[in-house]
């Protein structure tokens, strides 16, 4: 289990949307970074958001809480949060509380992008 890498976010644009690639661990000490980035995305009127979890090594309830804080507003604007490329240990935490019922979780960025293209959310 790593302690060196804390948390950072890489941001990439796609057609009317944004990919937030999370790196490191998401706990009570780092979740505010994610909160600020999602707030910034929503302030830019972007509501199609892909959360790329390829390099997310850990999540606690503090991280889950940030997604829950924003999902209602995102969906009210016709958008969504789609998660992709989750490591097994991270998926296990989502699954423990039943979050796969609420969120779309897919295996790759390409699959996440195609969901937005098919769904046509804005």
């Amino acid at each position: 289990m790593q302690t060196q890498q804390a948390f950072s976010i890489e941001v990439h644009a796609f057609d009317q949307g944004r990919i937030l690639s999370l790196h490191g661990y998401l706990d009570a000490s780092t979740s505010n970074i994610l909160d600020q980035e999602i707030q910034k995305t929503l302030a830019d009127a972007i509501h199609k958001i892909i959360i790329d979890c390829t390099d997310l090594t850990y999540i606690s309830s503090a991280g889950l809480g940030i997604f829950m804080k924003h999902i209602d507003a995102i969906r009210k604007h016709g958008g969504d949060l789609v998660f992709c490329s989750m490591q097994k240990s991270v998926y296990t935490v989502f699954d423990l509380l039943g979050f796969p019922i609420l969120y779309r979780i897919v295996d790759s960025t390409e699959s996440a992008l195609s969901l937005f293209q098919v769904g046509g959310e804005s």
Partner: peptide, 22 residues
């Protein structure tokens, strides 16, 4: 109640529930 939690888009307060489930 997790179904109500999701339906109401609640947030926070899940840490102790995670502990219980582990």
């Amino acid at each position: 109640d997790m179904m109500s939690y999701f339906k109401n888009f609640s947030y926070g307060g899940l840490g102790i529930e995670l502990m219980r489930r582990i």
